[in-house]
């Protein structure tokens, strides 16, 4: 490659980085504006919007609610996802490809269709809209991601480890609990955080399956519909920072796993 094309390419990359970051930076900046009106220019600055957010019971309760849903649905997704991944990583059987395809299905269904199909399905099972329904839908939606991440890690587990456990008399369940599960730890952390983030940020499923209590994205949506305000910027900024930190931590964990620095 010539130096010229390399330069052009790197400029395109940095332009793309700008495209990704500028809107978010503007959004963060606007949260410090000392005026009710969203828009440039910003003449004076304030931290009041943040104080307001941290004193707003509605926002705090929505935040807690989203956390509750995120953690609960992630636990379900992890349990189910690990089970499916162990099955798919094991010996072949008739219909394995079909099970694999069906496992990935929720990740491919467009958001709105996934949300309303679950709304109808919840009705079939007599589950009212609300916490249970959201957790259930988020859990199902996140299973494919857990399976993919866990299966990648399982593929690197030396078969000799399990053989050794079996030779020492462990039955499959004990061998799984004492050999496989500890080995999967980094994948569980990475996959778990990934599920948490997807669930925490999800709007469309929570919107159609929710009851009267809004999750944080649903609350932000409702606030946006009644008008933009720097308070929304402050909420969004807090979400952005938390999401970023959690994501980087999970990414570091999975990367160290790939480099083989984490063994147990």
């Amino acid at each position: 490659m010539t130096r010229h094309t390399r330069l052009v390419m790197s400029m395109i990359y940095w332009a793309f980085v700008l495209y990704i970051f500028v809107p978010l930076i503007l959004m963060v900046t606007m949260g410090f504006k000392d005026s009710k009106f969203i828009g440039f220019p910003i003449r004076s600055w304030t931290l009041d919007w943040y104080l307001e957010v941290f004193g707003d019971a509605e926002v705090l309760s929505a935040f807690g609610y989203s956390m509750l849903i995120g953690v609960s649905s992630t636990l379900v997704s992890l349990a189910v996802g690990v089970w499916i991944a162990v099955l798919l990583n094991g010996r072949g059987f008739v219909g394995k490809g079909l099970i694999y395809g069906l496992t990935l299905l929720p990740a491919l269904i467009p958001g709105i269709i996934s949300a309303i199909s679950f709304r109808i399905y919840a009705q079939l099972w007599g589950i009212p809209p609300g916490t249970g329904a959201i957790i259930w839908c988020h859990a199902v939606h996140n299973v494919p991601f857990v399976v993919l991440i866990v299966a990648a890690r399982l593929g690197t587990l030396p078969k000799s480890h399990l053989d050794a456990a079996r030779d020492l008399g462990a039955d499959p369940i004990i061998a799984f609990m004492r050999v496989t599960l500890p080995y999967l730890r980094p994948a569980l952390i990475g996959g778990g955080v990934f599920c948490m983030l997807i669930s925490f940020d999800d709007f469309v499923r929570s919107f159609f399956l929710g009851g009267y209590q809004p999750t944080l994205p649903v609350l932000i949506f409702a606030k946006l519909r009644s008008g933009m305000s720097p308070e929304i910027n402050a909420i969004a900024t807090v979400v952005l920072v938390l999401t970023g930190l959690l994501g980087i931590w999970a990414e570091r964990t999975t990367r160290r796993m790939k480099q083989g620095k984490l063994h147990s």
């Binding site: 503007l26 959004m27 606007m30 994501g247």
Partner: peptide
């Protein structure tokens, strides 16, 4: 990693009449 709503809002601020 930030969700649909937050990023949509960021675009609203970018492109609004008083936007950047």
């Amino acid at each position: 990693w930030v969700g649909e709503i937050v990023r949509t809002y960021a675009i609203m601020i970018l492109l609004g009449n008083n936007g950047a």
